[in-house]
Amino acid sequence: MSQFSSSERYIVSEELGKAVDVAIAIGRPLLIKGEPGTGKTLLAVDLARQLGKPLIRWQVKSTTKAVEGLYQYDTVKRLHDSRFGDGDVGDIAKYIELGPLGRGFAHDEQAVVLIDEIDKADLEFPNDLLHELDAMSFSIPETGAVIDAKRRPIVVITSNNEKELPDAFLRRCVFHWISFPERELMAQIVAVHHPEVETQLLASALEAFYRLRRIDGLRKPPSTSELIDWIAALRHADIDPAKLLGAGLPFLGVLLKKEQDLSLAERGGARGGRH
C-alpha cells in the first residue's frame, strides 16, 4: 500500500499522511482545511509529485459553477463560426472542452485533481458535484457523450472555511484539519525551504515567531508562509539572531499585515522587553 509521508520538499504530520492514505484506499475525496498558509495546496502538488501522477488543478472562484469543472460548451465560438463560415458547425463535440475534473476522469492514468478553495464558490456548488464525485462519471447532454473515469482520480479539496459546506458533501469526504505546526515540525518545514539556515538564527526566529503568535487579540496571526518569508528577509539583511529576542523585531511587516496587529505587537513587545 502506498504511504504518503514527508518529502524533501514538503513536511506532513503523521496524521495527515494517514488521512491521505485512507482517502486513496477507500476512494473518497480528501477535504483539507486549516489556517491560511499551512500548506493545503502544496499537499496536492507534493502528493502528485511523490506518486508520479499528473496534477490537474481547478482554482475555484466566487463565480465558478460546478459544470465548468466537467466541461464547457463554447456556444459563442460556434455561433461565430456559423455566422462567419469557419469550419463545420454541425459537430458540437468540436466546441466541447473538458474542465479540470472532466480531464481528470478522461485521463488514461490516474490523476490527482486539486479543487482549490471550494468555499469561494456559491453555497450550492459542492452539492452540484455530489453525483459526479460519487459515480466518477458524467454525461454531456449536448452531444450525448458519457465521460467515465478510466482510473478513479485522487481528489484533493481545500477549504478556507469561508462558507460552511453542505452535510451531504461532507459525509462523502475524508477530512483533515491541518493544525498549526508545533515548533519541532515548524523547524523541519523551515529547513525544507531554507536548507542552509544557521541554527542560531532559526532558533531565535522561531522563538520570536511563537511569542508573536501568543499575543492575545491578533486579527491575523502570522502563518507558516509568512515565517518563511521573514526568515528569508532576516538572512538577506544578515540580522544578528540576538536582536530577535528583545523588543522591536525587524521586518515586522512581513509577519503582520494588519495595522492594529502591528501596533498591538509593538506594545506587547515593549512589555515583554521589560522582563
Binding site: E14, E15, K18, V22, K33, L170, V174, F175, H176
Partner: peptide, 12 residues
C-alpha cells in the same frame, strides 16, 4: 484513532 477521526469527523 487517526483513521476513525478522518472518516467520522468532518469539521474541525
Amino acid at each position: 484513532y487517526t483513521v476513525a477521526r478522518c472518516i467520522l469527523v468532518n469539521d474541525e
